[in-house]
Amino acid sequence: SPTVSMAELDHQVQLISKSHLETCQYLREELQQMSWQNFLQDEVESYQSKPREVMWQLCAVKITEAIQYVVEFAKRIDGFMDLCQNDQIVLLKAGSLEVIFVRMCRMFDSQNNTVFFDGKFAGPDVFRALGCDDLISSVFDFAKSMCSLHLSEDELALFSAFVLLSADRSWLQEKLQVEKLQQKTQLALQHVLQKNQREDGLLHKLRCKVSALRSLCSRHTEKLSAFRAVYPDIVGTHFPPLYKELFG
């Protein structure tokens, strides 16, 4: 774009990368140190034998913890807090879980097909009690395919911001403002991909991930409604209030 200079793009990349690193919940080094810690068979079985509602509640708590970090990330994105409050909420309601799925590739071990959860690395079988094997397996497949792109922290930061600033979310009041922010982020993402000498098709591959993320999130909503239909009181009284605000 003729209106954005290289220096501005560099600055944008630096700012978003810093916000990402300050709010990413776990540093890569920390995760690497814990990478040998997998759940033992009896621990896996203990997760599998938990009542469905207990496992759902545990996952809701973990998702909520991660969302708090995403909210902090959003607040530190240049321009986000200048949006009207309605739009800040709309973007976080629609995008926070998507960012968690993007961030998940940092906590994912492709070789073992495990993800860092509740203190150790867990395979999909740990989540069996949820009764959502198909969704869990899609989430793991998504993480694996994100991992295969080998994104650096700055690329991941820019992509997360791009996802969060989606200007096509329903109920936005100042769509144009969000569009401007998203375009600026996309330019910064392109800039960082070029600077890191990534292959030409990577931006296209990342764009394809956006629809996969939407599908995962709508399937999460469906599974939650099905769960809520059976256990309305559990959701009402035991789920974190922030989780209910976002997905209720």
């Binding site: 409050q85 309601k93 605000e245």
Partner: peptide, 16 residues
């Protein structure tokens, strides 16, 4: 606003 009380609160808290 009432519907997203916690989110509002998180957004208003100053970044640490």
């Amino acid at each position: 606003k009432e519907k997203h009380k916690i989110l509002h609160q998180l957004l208003q808290n100053s970044t640490s």
